[in-house]
């Protein structure tokens, strides 16, 4: 080739340009198209699909996480409310129970007091009765003693 004239060698040499150059270029372009069909397109599609898949999954997972967080919050609020209600119910019940107990106690005390007073009154009554009968008997006995000692005429005077 005429280029090699400049390079001081007529045949061979390092800078021996010939039809290798264009054929290599054509060969390379063919390789580009083959690899485009067998390598870049399918694998690129696989990578892009995977990216989409991962991104989609990540988005739904994030949505679900957000949903779960909201649900948890709601449940926690409900739980707190319910706990408060329960406490108030317990307090109410305790108040009512103590009121009933106090009432019952007061009633019982009143009953006991009444019974004691009734018993005391009865005792007093019986004491009076006993004194009264004793007095009678004392009267009878003293009359008998008088009759015995003084005779019945004197005694009846």
């Amino acid at each position: 080739m005429h280029w090699t004239v400049f390079l001081a060698e007529t045949e061979g040499g390092l800078f021996d340009f010939d039809a290798t150059l264009p054929l290599m270029a054509v060969q390379f372009l063919i390789l580009v198209t083959i690899l485009n069909a067998t390598f870049y397109k399918p694998l690129g599609k696989a990578i892009d699909d995977r990216d989409d898949y991962v991104r989609g999954n990540e988005t739904t997972a994030r949505d679900r996480l957000e949903e779960v967080r909201q649900l948890t919050e709601r449940y926690e609020q409900e739980l707190a409310q319910t706990r408060k209600q329960a406490q108030s119910i317990v307090a109410e019940a305790r108040g009512a129970a103590s009121k009933i107990a106090a009432q019952n106690l007061a009633e019982a005390q009143a009953e006991a007091l009444r019974k004691r007073e009734a018993a005391a009154a009865e005792i007093e009554q019986q004491k009076q009765d006993a004194f009264a009968s004793l007095e009678q008997q004392i009267d009878g006995l003293s009359r008998q003693m008088l009759e015995k000692l003084l005779g019945s005429e004197l005694a009846s005077r």
Binding site: M1, D16, D18, A19, T20, L23, M24, Q27, L31, I34, L35, T38, F39, L43
Partner: peptide, 22 residues
């Protein structure tokens, strides 16, 4: 046309490696 045969032989090897691998 004059071609450098040794270059083509090895380049075919390289192309074959790439095509087979992909």
């Amino acid at each position: 046309l004059k071609l450098h045969g040794q270059v083509f032989l090895t380049s075919w090897f390289v192309i074959a490696v790439l095509v087979v691998a992909s």
